[in-house]
Amino acid sequence: MALASFTFFALAIIAVASAVGVLIARSPIYSALSLILNLLCVAGLYLTMNASFIGVIQILVYAGAIMVLVLFVIMLLNLDALPSPRDIGWGPVAGFLFGVVVLMQLLYVILVGFDISLEPATPVMTAETGSAETLGIMLFTEYALHLQVAAILLLAATIGAVMLAQRSFE
C-alpha cells in the first residue's frame, strides 16, 4: 500500500510541476511538451486509482492524438516565443490567485453546509464502475441523450471548422 501511495503522490507532484511548466514556458513547443507530460501523469493517477480504462483512454486520446494535432497547429502557425514574464502585468495574476482562494473557501463552505463527505473509493467500487463494460452500459442507457447531444454538437463544430477552413483557402 505504501508503494501505491508513494506513486500517487509522486505522479501528482510531477503533474502539478508540469502544469506550471505549461504556464511559464516561453516557447509554445516546450509548453506543449509539458502538457503531454501532465496528461501522462494524469493517466498514471487514473491507473493508481484502479481506473484502467480511463487511464488508457487518457493516454491514447489526449496524450496521443490531441497533442499531435496541437503540435501540428503550433508548427503550422510558426509561433515565436512568448513575451517575457517581466512584460506581464502582475495585477491580473494576483486577482486570479485571490479568486482561487475565494473559490476554495466557497467550496469548503458548501461541503460543510451540505454535509458532503469526500470519502476515497474502495478498490471494489472502482472495479465495478471503472471498467469499460460498465462505462459503456451507463453511456448507452442512462446517458444516451447526453451522448447524442454531445455527438451533434461535435458534428456541428466539425462542419463549421471545415467551412471556415475552406473559406480561408479560397
Rank of each mutant, 00 (worst) to 15 (best):
G95R: 07
V101L: 14
I137Q: 13
F72Y: 11
G95W: 03
A15H: 00
M49C: 14
A81R: 08
P28A: 13
A51T: 05
L23D: 09
G44V: 11
A43H: 11
T129W: 10
G55C: 12
G91F: 04
S18D: 03
M125T: 11
V61M: 07
V93A: 01
L76Q: 08
L145K: 06
L37R: 10
E133T: 12
A32Y: 14
L154S: 12
L47C: 08
A2H: 11
I110E: 05
L153C: 14
A127M: 08
A165Y: 11
V112E: 10
S5D: 05
Y62R: 03
L139K: 08
Y62K: 06
M1R: 03
T141N: 10
L45E: 13
R167T: 06
L77T: 01
F6L: 12
V22M: 15
L79C: 06
A94G: 02
S31W: 09
Y108N: 10
Y108L: 12
L3E: 14
L47W: 10
L145C: 01
S31N: 09
T129Y: 12
V22A: 03
T48S: 15
Y62F: 12
A19H: 03
I14M: 11
T158D: 10
A10F: 13
T129P: 00
L147F: 14
A94F: 06
A43M: 11
F96N: 00
I29A: 10
A12L: 15
L33Q: 13
V68A: 13
L76T: 07
L107Q: 05
G99A: 13
L79M: 09
L40R: 01
T7S: 14
